[in-house]
């Protein structure tokens, strides 16, 4: 079985998830072809173990994101099973490539073994399922669910030029988002809920986030009731995240919130109610008010 991996980039560099996509395929004993849109990250990718060759697909269709244009250009050089990150853009490109080839797509996979057999969470993590795939498919892998591949390779890079049409025209850029890291990107997330008392108190979370290079998240209660931006919302109707560390402050742990963050590697909860459901999934629970806990947390972090 041939594997084509579509690299995800961050500016001119590879995004961490690309190392994970390559690592996941190496771990099942296969080599992969890596496609780098507009050549970004191609020399970096050629040094990663498990990569057989790189195809740099160049075209002005990659200058802005239009899933359909990206998928057309990328699809022209895809072979075999296509692997891409389960990021929002990855899911969209993957879906279109799958539809172009009339093959199934399996999204948000957290485990893969030869065969190919994949595992993915379903019902917001209330269950998992294992699927056996025969023939070609597109598979999106959940960020942070796989180990990074190692460095130590010198794979050849070839270049292909492609054009494809944009169907979506941008007519107006609206507000600027804050410069803060997005929750789906971050390795550490500190989220606040109604227990924070007011929007102003989120500054305490932000200052800790700054020292940890973390993103700030929120429960739906504060998004709906205090007008925090929806992009910060974690949960069933917000973002699904799986960072290494998730710190929940003043969040009760409603089932819909847990749905978005239960697969975090480590969960720390700060809540003054010892019976708050968030404690049932926390690795470390601190039964205290945030007013007491956050200053100590902050000063301890400063000592590191």
């Amino acid at each position: 079985m041939k594997f084509t991996i579509i690299a995800e980039t961050n500016g001119d560099l590879l995004h961490q998830t690309t190392y994970q996509l390559i690592g996941a395929i190496s771990n099942i004993g296969s080599k992969s072809t890596v496609i780098c849109p507009n050549g970004k990250g191609s020399s970096e990718a050629s040094k990663i173990k498990g990569v057989e060759k790189i195809i740099s697909v160049n075209g002005d269709c990659f200058d802005l994101f239009d899933g359909s244009a990206w998928a057309s250009a990328i699809n022209s050089v895809c072979e075999g099973t296509v692997i891409i990150s389960a990021s929002p853009n990855g899911r969209e490109i993957g879906s279109i490539i799958a539809a172009k080839r009339n093959i199934p797509i399996i999204q948000d996979v957290t485990g893969i073994s030869p065969g190919i057999t994949v595992t993915r969470p379903i019902y917001s993590g209330k269950a998992t399922e294992t699927l056996e795939i025969s023939g070609e498919s597109v598979i999106t892998l959940r960020p942070n669910a796989f180990e990074n591949a190692d460095i130590g390779n010198e794979a050849p890079i070839s270049v292909v030029d492609q054009t494809s049409d944009l169907r979506v025209a941008i007519i107006e850029a609206i507000n600027k988002a804050s410069e803060r890291l997005d929750v789906t990107e971050a390795d550490i997330i500190i989220s606040g809920g109604r227990g924070m008392g007011s929007v102003d108190n989120f500054s305490h979370l932000e200052s800790i986030a700054d020292s940890l290079d973390a993103a700030v998240g929120a429960s739906r209660a504060v998004v709906d009731e205090w007008g925090m931006p929806h992009r910060m919302q974690v949960g069933q109707t917000g973002k699904t995240v799986s960072p290494s560390l998730y710190i929940a402050v003043g969040i009760s742990g409603a089932i819909q919130h847990l749905a978005g963050m239960r697969s975090s590697k480590y969960i720390v909860a700060i809540n003054k109610d010892p019976d708050a459901p968030i404690f049932t999934i926390a690795d470390y629970g601190i039964v205290a008010s945030w007013e007491e806990a956050l200053p100590i947390l902050k000063s301890e972090l400063m000592k590191l």
């Binding site: 399996i106 399922e129 294992t130 470390y284 629970g285």
Partner: peptide, 19 residues
């Protein structure tokens, strides 16, 4: 083309420590 092999409950997390 996609065969359902099994569905399972999510892996149990080790119970955490609450202080």
């Amino acid at each position: 083309r996609v065969l359902l092999k099994a569905q399972n409950s999510p892996p149990e997390k080790e119970p955490g420590q609450i202080f």
